[in-house]
Design a protein around this nucleic acid. Structure first.
Length: 532
RNA sequence: GCGCUCAUAGCUCAGCUGGAUAGAGCACUGGUUUGCGGUACCAGCGGUCGGGCGUUCGAAUCGCUCUGGGCGCACCA
C-alpha cells in the first residue's frame, strides 16, 4: 500500500517524498509534510501549498480523500482500494507480503565454538539471524545461512584436555590438577563416558591422543548445537570448518599483495592503513597462522563464492574486530561495503525479579536448552526478536510463563485463536465469507483492516533496517486492535457477520504470516496449562 | 589512556531517513457488556527523552561537549 502511494507521489513531485503513518488515525492513513520543504523553494506558506496540493489529487481512485491540515497533506485510502487488496491477499495467502528481490546474500551467524552447548548469548544471535533470514527470504532474497565452525587452534586442544580431566576425575577417580583454563560443564562428563566407550579408558590418560579425542568430541558437540538450534526452528544450509581453510593460506596471503609484510620474523597485515588501530600479526614466528589468518581465508572464500552481499552476526564483544577483517577484504581486492557486520549484545536473565541462578554443573553458563525447556521456543524467539539486537537486554523469565495479556506472545496467539474460534462458531461457509464485500465497514473496522494490511510494509522495513523488533511490535499492536474490536462489536448474528468475519480472516492471515516469519507457529486454539 | 556503543515513565523496552499532543508492557489505583473464550477491554497515575551548547520553520531523532554504564584495545578464539 505504502509503496503504491509512495510511487504515486514520487511521480507527481519528481522526488522522493517522506511518507509517514500519522499517530492519530483521524489524520488519515498516510501523511506527508512535503509542503514544509517546498515552502522555502516556492516562497509561500506551507498552508497555502498544501491547500493547493490537496485539491490536485481529485480523481485518484486510490484515495477517498486528500486533506490539507496545518501544512500536512493527509491521505485516506479508498474503501475500494483497501477491499480489493484484502480480497487479493486472502486469495493468495501464501504470497501475502512477499516481494521478488533477487540479490544473493550470504548470512553467517551463530558460529559458536564447537567446544560446548549454546548459551543464552548465542541464542540471541541465533534468533536474530534466523529472523532476518526468514524476512529476507520472504522478500525473495536468495540467502544462504552459514555456520563457521572454529575447529582449529587452542580451543580444540582445550576441549580434548578438558574431557580428559573430567574423565580422570569422575571415571578414574584420580586426583586431578586443573590448569588455568579448561572447559567445565555437565556435557563434558557425558563426553568422557562416551569417549571411554568408544576408545577405551586409555584415551583419558594419554596426552598424545588429546587431539584425536578433541576432533572426535567436536562432532558430537556440533550435534548438540544443531539440535539446540533445531529445537528453536533454526536451520543452516552450510557449515564451513576453519580447519579446512588453512591449506589455502599461502595463496590467499599472496593475493593480499602489499597488504601483508614481514617484520621481526612474523607476517603482519597492514590493517592500520585501512582504519584499524594497528597492524596485526597473521603468522607467528614459529610459522603458525593466527586466528585472524583463518578468518581472512574464510572471507576470501566467501567473496570467491560471489554473493551480492554478505552479512555477519557477531557477538558485540567482537566489535573491535570489524576494521581488521574489512581491511583484509580490501587487500584481497573486494569491496568491504559488501560486508555488513551486525552485532548481538549481551543478555542477562532474571527470574521473579532475582538474577537467574546459573548452575555449577553447566559451568556457570545459562544454557539455551535450559531456557527453551523452561519457557518454550516461541517465547524465547519472541523475546529476542522484540528487542534491538545491539543493545543489552535484561528480561524476566517469569513474565513469559504467564498466560495472560502481560505475556506478549500469549496475547498475540490468543488473538489468532480467537479468530479461529469465532470462524468455527459461525454458520457461514468459508465461501460465503470470502464473497462478502469489505465496503461500508464503519470506521473502527476500516481501521482494523488497514492495520492488518500493513504487514508488507513492516516486513520490508524490518528486514532492510535489520530491526526485527519492528515485526513483533507490529504483531502486538495488531493483536491489541483485534482484541479491542472484538470487545466493542458483536459479530455473530449481525447483518455484517460475513464482512466482519472476512475482516477477521485478513487479521488472522497477517498474524499467522508475521508469526511464521518469527519462526513461531500460530495457534488455532489455546489450552490452559497448569501452573506449577 | 584510546576506540566503539548505550542513556526515553519506578522497572523492562519501543519510537531515531528530523515533523502534528513523546508510546507500550509490568507495577500501582479504579472501572467494564444481562451477548461470540473476562486467557479480554477501558480509565487514572507516572516523563526537564542523562546535562549543556549548536544546526533548523521544527530535534527524543542530526552535530559538538560533559557526565554515567557496557564492551573492546592478544602472536586467545
Amino acid at each position: 500500500m505504502k509503496q503504491r502511494v509512495s510511487a504515486l507521489l514520487r511521480e507527481k513531485f519528481g522526488r522522493e517524498v517522506v511518507l509517514e503513518k500519522p499517530r492519530d488515525r483521524s489524520f488519515g492513513h498516510f501523511a506527508t509534510p512535503i509542503a514544509f520543504s517546498l515552502a522555502k523553494e516556492l516562497r509561500k506558506s506551507p498552508m497555502a501549498i498544501s491547500d493547493e496540493l490537496a485539491s490536485s489529487f481529485d480523481g485518484h481512485e486510490e484515495f477517498s480523500s486528500v486533506e490539507s491540515v496545518k501544512g500536512y497533506l493527509n491521505f485516506r485510502l479508498s474503501e475500494n482500494f483497501l477491499s480489493e487488496y484484502a480480497s487479493w491477499a486472502l486469495e493468495h495467502s501464501s504470497e501475502f507480503a512477499k516481494q521478488e528481490k533477487s540479490q544473493k546474500i550470504l548470512l553467517e551467524f551463530v558460529s559458536a565454538n564447537p567446544t560446548g552447548p549454546l548459551h543464552i548469548g548465542h541464542a540471541r544471535g541465533a534468533v536474530y539471524g534466523d529472523t532476518l533470514l526468514r524476512l529476507g527470504r520472504h522478500l525473495g532474497y536468495d540467502i544462504t545461512a552459514e555456520y563457521y565452525v572454529n575447529d582449529a587452534g587452542n580451543q580444540i586442544d582445550l576441549l580434548g584436555l578438558s574431557i580428559q580431566l573430567e574423565g580422570r576425575s569422575n571415571i578414574l577417580h584420580q586426583e586431578v590438577e586443573y590448569p588455568e583454563s579448561y572447559y567445565r560443564g555437565e556435557y563434558l562428563s557425558d563426553l568422557a563416558l562416551q569417549a571411554v566407550e568408544h576408545f577405551g579408558k586409555e584415551i583419558l590418560s594419554d596426552e598424545s591422543r588429546q587431539k584425536e579425542l578433541a576432533l572426535w568430541a567436536k562432532e558430537i558437540v556440533m550435534e548438540i548445537i544443531t539440535k539446540d538450534l533445531g529445537d528453536t526452528n533454526i536451520f543452516f544450509d552450510t557449515f564451513v570448518n576453519e580447519s579446512s581453510l588453512y591449506s589455502d593460506w599461502e595463496r590467499v596471503m599472496a593475493k593480499m599483495g602489499e597488504g601483508v609484510y614481514e617484520k621481526d620474523g612474523k607476517m603482519w597485515i597492514a590493517s592500520e592503513s585501512r582504519g584499524d588501530e594497528k597492524d596485526r600479526v597473521v603468522v607467528r614466528e614459529d610459522g603458525r597462522p593466527t586466528y585472524l589468518a583463518g578468518d581472512i581465508v574464510y572471507h576470501n572464500q566467501k567473496f570467491e563464492r560471489e554473493y551480492d552481499h554478505y552479512i555477519n552476526i557477531w557477538g558485540a564483544d567482537h566489535h573491535g574486530y570489524i576494521p581488521r577483517v574489512k581491511a583484509a577484504v580490501e587487500f584481497l581486492g573486494y569491496e568491504s561495503e559488501k560486508l555488513e557486520v551486525l552485532l548481538s549484545q549481551m543478555v542477562s536473565l532474571l527470574k521473579d525479579g532475582e538474577p537467574y541462578k546459573m548452575s555449577k554443573r553447566a559451568g556457570n553458563v545459562i544454557l539455551m536448552s535450559d531456557i527453551v525447556e523452561e519457557i518454550g521456543s516461541d517465547a524465547l524467539r519472541f523475546i529476542f526478536a522484540s528487542k534491538k539486537s545491539d543493545t543489552s537486554l535484561e528480561f524476566d523469565l517469569a513474565e513469559f510463563k504467564k498466560q495472560d495479556s502481560s505475556n506478549p506472545i500469549f496475547y498475540i496467539q490468543y488473538a489468532h485463536a480467537r479468530i479461529q474460534t469465532i470462524l468455527s462458531k459461525s454458520d457461514l461457509s468459508k465461501e460465503e465469507i470470502l464473497a462478502a464485500s469489505l465496503k461500508n465497514l464503519g470506521e473502527s473496522a476500516d481501521s482494523l483492516l488497514f492495520d492488518a494490511l500493513l504487514l508488507p510494509e513492516v516486513v520490508d522495513d524490518a528486514f532492510h533496517s535489520r530491526q526485527v523488533q519492528k515485526l513483533s511490535e507490529y504483531l502486538r499492536s495488531l493483536a491489541g486492535a483485534l482484541h479491542k474490536f472484538y470487545y466493542d462489536y458483536r459479530i455473530i448474528g449481525t447483518e455484517d457477520e460475513a464482512k466482519l468475519l472476512k475482516l477477521f480472516m485478513v487479521v488472522a492471515l497477517s498474524l499467522k504470516t508475521g508469526l511464521s516469519l518469527m519462526g513461531i507457529e500460530a495457534k488455532d486454539y489455546m489450552t490452559k496449562e497448569d501452573e506449577d
